[in-house]
């Protein structure tokens, strides 16, 4: 039936496979920023819909940390723990925005450092934030319209107040 040589070969193959699996798992883990190499700050958002713990934190598209736990503030705002690389010093007027990779891609936190001389200390809170934009809500508003109590008085002229993102620096 099965020779001892064959059993040994299968055993070695399984052990080899497990070693490879362990090696790749270690490599994958080490590519992320370890908790010991980070410090934590907090950001307050009005909404973090779609953002998950572990999501990337980026500056200019470069990963610099990851999102920790999400919690609810006293005023029902969303508090997000941001784990930032220790070697990175952020100015006190740094802004945090929730962005997504593509239209329906994963959400991440984008940081935009400012010009303040004071630096954010561990545990400090960023309140200058931009919350996630709810695509479905926007689509719903587009499809069904928005609540309009002055419909009777409104004229059919197009809306003249664009959101800030549509206002370019250079016309």
């Amino acid at each position: 039936m099965n020779s001892p040589g064959m059993e040994r070969a299968v055993g070695l193959f399984v052990i080899g496979g497990l070693l490879c699996l362990g090696y790749f798992a270690f490599q994958l883990g080490s590519s992320e920023i370890r908790p010991s190499e980070t410090y934590t700050i907090e950001a307050r958002f009005n909404s973090v819909a779609g953002l998950n713990p572990g999501a990337q934190i980026q500056i200019a598209g470069v990963p610099v940390g990851s999102v920790g736990k999400l919690s609810l503030g006293k005023d029902f705002s969303a508090l997000v723990e941001l784990r930032i690389r220790k070697d990175l010093q952020l100015s006190a007027d740094t802004m945090a925005s929730i962005r997504s990779h593509g239209l329906l891609g994963d959400q991440y936190v984008s940081l935009t450092p400012g010009g303040d001389d004071r630096l954010l200390a561990p545990g400090e809170r960023i309140t200058d934030t931009e919350s996630s934009v709810d695509i479905l809500q926007l689509l719903g508003r587009f499809a069904f319209g928005s609540v309009n109590s002055d419909k009777k008085t409104s004229s059919p002229t197009p809306e003249k107040t664009p959101p800030a993102e549509e206002i370019p620096l250079k016309p």
Partner: peptide, 21 residues
């Protein structure tokens, strides 16, 4: 010091433009 319209911050919007310049 900042106005946020429909989730878009005035300061953030202009900061990205000034960073580009």
């Amino acid at each position: 010091y900042d106005v946020n319209i429909e989730g878009v911050s005035l300061v953030s919007n202009y900061r990205s433009q000034f960073d580009s310049v």
